[in-house]
């Protein structure tokens, strides 16, 4: 017997979907929402990941150690191992995308910053694909990366976007360096750093200068039904989408519009638009390739032991200015300071 609650107000998004979504979108919504049945066994997953890291984290410097698992549309991690480092391409495009995107992200961190994987010591890159049924998310769980397939209309497979794959891997880097607390400004900084390195990996892979880049996050994974161009825009925060199902992009690009909220862990994916936009302003003012100067400054600040895990935007900005001065001189430091000022941070 099912108990119905007469006082329940229909969720506004399901109403939106029922009014505006296609028949297949409605089917997708039901499927996505029912993935949680098999979510348990976190300890088993943790033990499995620890064993995998112990076994596979042994690559020489300059070489990644990638292992891709197929979760088989279930939610137990990591799933079945389907592609190991050095093996020929698999017929599964999604597994292959995860493998190549993780390789490109490894290559970026190693070539540009001489960082040997997530921990700097060759940590295995574990990724699970086909997680859940039409699961519309990708995440880093502290041990591995996980990618859903999306529904095919709003979200395509999350491996489709190299910047999203790099975003998740960078969460691992941040966790093992600054360890920025995932709440309020430090959480938004954590999110912004994943976007900054994610977009740089995309630009590095494409060989794009700052003027050639689109400065969008997740453009490749939005489906044809979405009224929008990406998950986020670093050039113009708040303009990435305005969609009947997703709603409107809530990101601010200036401290004047800082969103004071308890949603989203204090707006970690919302207020990240502010440091995102600062990076965009600084990188485009500097010109050339984003990773050469702006990226080098951001990496130095991220890995600086003075960066506290509860750092505020202004703390991170101060470190970027210090590293800009130390590594590139006062002219670059002035550009960095001006960029932060343009988003309302710093003197």
């Amino acid at each position: 017997m099912a108990t119905r609650y007469p006082g329940v107000i229909p969720p506004h998004m399901l109403k939106r979907l029922s009014e505006h979504g296609s028949e297949s979108q409605r089917r997708w919504a039901s499927s996505t929402l029912s993935t949680d049945r098999h979510f348990r066994q976190p300890m088993a997953a943790r033990e499995m990941a620890a064993a995998l890291h112990a076994e596979y984290s042994n690559s020489p410097r300059g070489t990644p150690s990638r292992y891709i698992f197929d979760a088989g549309h279930k939610t137990e991690l990591p799933g079945e191992l389907v592609l190991s480092e050095g093996e020929p391409a698999t017929a599964d495009d999604t597994a292959h995308e995860a493998y190549t995107d993780l390789g490109a992200t490894y290559r970026f961190f190693y070539d540009v910053f001489e960082r040997h994987s997530i921990d700097g010591e060759g940590m295995a890159l574990l990724g699970s694909v086909h997680y859940g049924e039409a699961y519309q998310n990708a995440f880093w769980d502290g041990r591995q990366m996980v990618f859903g397939d999306g529904d095919g209309e709003i979200f395509l497979p999350f491996t489709r976007a190299i910047d999203v794959v790099a975003h998740e891997l960078t969460h691992g880097v941040t966790e093992l360096t600054a360890g920025l607390v995932y709440y309020n400004q430090s959480g938004a900084l954590n999110e912004s750093i994943s976007d900054v390195f994610g977009v740089m990996v995309k630009q590095y892979q494409a060989g794009q200068t700052v003027d050639e880049a689109d400065w969008l996050i997740g453009a490749a994974l939005l489906g044809p039904e979405v009224q929008g161009k990406a998950l986020r825009s670093m050039a113009a925060p708040g303009t990435a989408y305005d969609d009947p199902v997703l709603g409107k992009d809530p990101q601010p690009g200036h401290m004047d519009q800082f969103v004071d909220t308890t949603d989203d862990n204090g707006g970690v994916h919302i207020n990240s638009g502010i440091p995102n936009h600062a990076f965009y302003l600084i990188a485009t003012e500097l010109g050339g390739y984003s990773w050469e100067t702006a990226g080098a400054i951001w990496y130095a600040a991220l890995t600086d032991e003075r960066l506290a895990n509860d750092a505020q935007f202004v703390d991170f900005a101060g470190l970027t200015m210090a590293h800009a001065t130390q590594r590139f001189g006062s002219k670059v430091a002035d550009i960095v300071q001006k960029g932060w000022q343009q988003v309302g941070i710093g003197p």
């Binding site: 609650y5 329940v8 975003h167 969609d243 989203d264």
Partner: peptide, 27 residues
């Protein structure tokens, strides 16, 4: 609400409100 995920799209939280005064004691 369901929160988190790689994007904070307002439409994905799908808030569900329940008025306790309209629920029976067993509910």
């Amino acid at each position: 609400t369901r929160e988190g995920g790689i994007v904070a799209a307002p439409g994905l939280a799908r808030p569900r409100d329940i008025e306790l005064s309209r629920c029976s004691p067993p509910e």
